[in-house]
Design a protein around this nucleic acid. Structure first.
Lengths: 231, 231
DNA sequence: GCAAAAGTGTTTGGGTTACACCCATGC
DNA sequence: GCATGGGTGTAACCCAAACACTTTTGC
């Protein structure tokens, strides 16, 4: 990471983003290959410096857009990562974020100025990353596992319209265990967070499933009544 | 906060700690009154700067000891707080922590070098604090509410030996609703995390309750078997 | 005896679990 | 017809909720 605009950025603090996607039953993470610097040609999380007049939330959103073209997605801070030796060049603390994106909406991602490549990797197959990025990914994954059981955020990884089985497979992949189809259906439907559409699956070689969409408004109303999403 | 030792601390990053205690049925927080600087005579969270060769975890522990004399307690990072205008003097990001302490073990707390007073306040009665400290306290409280339902951390706020009713009152105070005594007993006992001691309450004007202690070792073993603390 | 909290018992009902089974569609 | 996934039905069981009731101790 080359420092530029000395006067307008904070030194010693950066942002790093764990960007999750879901594709063909597998949880994936978006990585970038650095174009230069001490980590040239190595894969890591997209990240960068913070301007002096923006919050870390704003910086994370900006960097996401700059580095990958992605915007307006679910984004939440993980925490600060601060081991003194985490960055070999100087003492830098990073604030980790994780994002959930509907992968289908973002085809043709382009690497930003400081990256030579940007690509999706299956989370289960990621090996070494630069600095402590592997560790940050692990923290992001644990956070996702925890959150998905308590808040209906899984929908951020699926297309607008999805089938109940797709949703179940998402839960199975993230949580790491198998579920019972009939029971999953009833459990999720009983919450009244999903609206069944008039539409059905197409081009499948079996009975077409009903498509559903998630209702954020309904969720808000339920929350106000003291509803508690639990899975 | 006066900056000293320019060469050995990180500028633009600080630590702030939300220290919770429990006393007579009320959740309390430890605050310090600043001895000088722009916030002289105002109450805020204990905090300070980070040395270049220590992690934020290490800094939080060190500051806790320096500012209040407290050490070896439950301490967990909340997250980074980074609004550009949160600190009026310069651009400073703070990493928030929260601690749970057995208040009885730490009587006679003494203010550190930069504080003129240190005192406990009922969380429900805290009003204005310096900078965004009120906000950080709120985030700490939400975190505590969430965690206490998922991990057996409540014991860190109670004496080594406690009664089941004390524990229930702790849950009621933190979660903000009343519970049923018989049902609470059975629920917590069925988890096998508590050991009944041969000892009983003393000097109470009613039937003396059995004292219990929490077993961290048992909890570890249960965790390994896939046990999931849920409240 | 009375107050106060400790501690036990019991009924009820909702919800999870486990699994059997029928439906629709493409090949 | 058969494979594949969509979708419904149901019995067993667990467990939380609600509340009645007994026990122990100090005054």
């Amino acid at each position: 990471m080359a420092k530029q605009y000395e006067a307008t950025i904070l030194d010693s603090i950066t942002i790093d983003c764990v960007i999750f996607g879901f594709n063909q039953g597998a949880l994936e993470v978006l990585l970038v290959k650095h174009a230069d610097g001490i980590s040239k040609d190595k894969w890591g999380l997209p990240g960068g410096w913070i301007f002096t007049d923006e919050s870390t939330d704003a910086a994370a959103n900006r960097l996401l857009l700059e580095l990958t073209g992605i915007k307006d997605v679910y984004l939440e801070q993980l925490r600060a990562f601060s081991e003194p030796d985490r960055f070999p060049v100087s003492r830098v603390i990073t604030v980790g974020y994780y994002a959930l994106i509907k992968k289908q909406d973002w085809t043709g991602l382009k690497p930003g100025a400081t990256a030579s490549e940007v690509a999706w990797f299956k989370v289960s197959e990621v090996e070494t990353l630069i600095y402590d990025h592997r560790h940050i990914l692990g923290v992001g994954l644990r956070r996702l596992r925890r959150r998905i059981k308590q808040e209906p955020i899984g929908f951020n990884l699926l297309p607008e319209k999805f089938t109940l089985l797709q949703l179940m497979h998402l839960y199975e992949e993230i949580l790491g265990y198998e579920m019972d189809k009939p029971n999953f259906r009833r459990k999720i439907l009983r919450m009244n967070l999903l609206t069944a559409l008039d539409e059905k699956q197409k081009d499948v070689s079996h009975r077409a499933a009903t498509l559903y969409k998630f209702n954020p408004e309904t969720y808000q109303k339920l929350l106000e009544k003291g509803f508690n999403f639990e899975f």
